[in-house]
Amino acid sequence: MSFSSSSSARLLGWALPLLVGLLFLGAWEWAVRAQGLPEFILPAPSRIGEALVTNAGSLFLSAWVTLKVTLAAFLLATVSGVGLAVLFSQSRVVETAFFPYAVILQVTPVVAIAPLILIWVGLDNVELALLILAWIVAFFPILSNSVLGLRSVDHNLRDLFRLYGASRWQTLTGLQLPAALPHILSGMKVSGGLALIGAVVAEFVAGSGASTGLAWRIIEAGNRLQIPKMFAALVLLSLLGIAIFFALSLLEYALLRRWHESAVKRES
């Protein structure tokens, strides 16, 4: 593949979705104006932009609140997920005993546990409750991916470590964790998005002004029929999700670029 065609392919990769988006927004704007749709049913994109600007203060503050919960839950999920997976990898007994409970935690709908967590943690501690709920949602993909990754070590490499008398710690840090890294990172990519979803769902359930995140702004704007503001909050939420995804993709690329198949484009 020649240089120019590969770089034009890259450009196309950006330009094409962008073009589709612009066309869509244009059509939307036109349709709303031509039909004279009322704002509380479907505001035009220009009105949403306007609402974003006029409410920038409260919206960005709320975005920050949601982002904080999301990031904290995500970090907690990463540390606990990888940590637990390492523990499992050291002892089959521990894994057999505890893995089912991790699955139970995963399959129970977070909306159903939320009221309970809120009561336990106390309504004056809503941020902690949000953190716990978002963590529950984000935790499992990291755990299961890490467990898979730690197990998927090449048998011959494992034998080699044994032949040279490697300690458990050396095998873990020198072999299992590096081998598991691609799996852990793809678990993190899933969990990053889930942490945001978890934070938003938890905010919805907590409701009633107890939290001041983006989800609450959406409820609030909905109650007051401020539909443009509601859309503006939605836009911010999507942007947060996209930013998280990009940041994690970047991290993945940076860490795997030198060696892993998924991150390297082979010349062909």
């Binding site: 490499l157 080699l160 032949l163 081998a179 030198r258």
Partner: peptide, 11 residues
């Protein structure tokens, strides 16, 4: 020990 494939650590 040398295996049939090189068995290097790819990272």
């Amino acid at each position: 020990f040398v295996f049939q494939d090189a068995t290097l650590m790819p990272w």
